[in-house]
Simulated scan of single mutants.
Amino acid sequence: MLSKKLHDALNAQINAELWSAYLYLSMSLDAENKGFKGVANWFYIQFREEQDHARIFMNYLLSRDAEVKLSPIAEVRTSWASPLDMFKDTLEHEKKVTAMIHNLAAIAAEDRDFASSNKLVWFIDEQIEEEENARGMIQSFEAVEGNKFGLYMLDKELAARVYSVPSPLASTED
Rank of each mutant, 00 (worst) to 15 (best):
I107H: 07
I124R: 01
D155H: 12
E145C: 04
A115P: 02
D155K: 13
I128L: 13
F141D: 10
V144R: 14
A115D: 09
D155W: 09
I101F: 03
I124M: 07
L151I: 13
N147M: 07
M100E: 11
D155R: 07
L154F: 05
S117D: 08
E126N: 05
A109R: 12
I138G: 01
K156H: 08
Q139M: 12
A106K: 07
F114C: 04
D125S: 02
A134C: 03
Q127T: 03
I138R: 06
M100V: 04
N147P: 04
E110D: 13
R135Y: 12
N103L: 07
A106S: 13
Q139P: 06
I128D: 07
K148L: 15
G150P: 04
I124H: 02
A109M: 09
W122S: 03
R112N: 12
N133V: 02
F141E: 11
D155I: 08
K148E: 14
M100T: 13
I138K: 05
I124Y: 10
N133H: 06
L154C: 07
F141Q: 11
M137L: 14
F149Q: 14
N118M: 10
S140N: 14
I124K: 08
A109K: 14
A108Y: 01
N147F: 15
D155L: 06
A115R: 06
A143E: 13
N133Q: 01
Y152M: 14
E145F: 10
G146T: 10
E129G: 02
F114R: 12
N118S: 11
L154P: 00
S117M: 12
I107F: 01
Q127N: 05
I107W: 03
A143Y: 12
S140G: 04
N103Y: 08
H102P: 00
L104Q: 08
R135S: 13
L154D: 04
I124W: 01
A115G: 11
A143I: 09
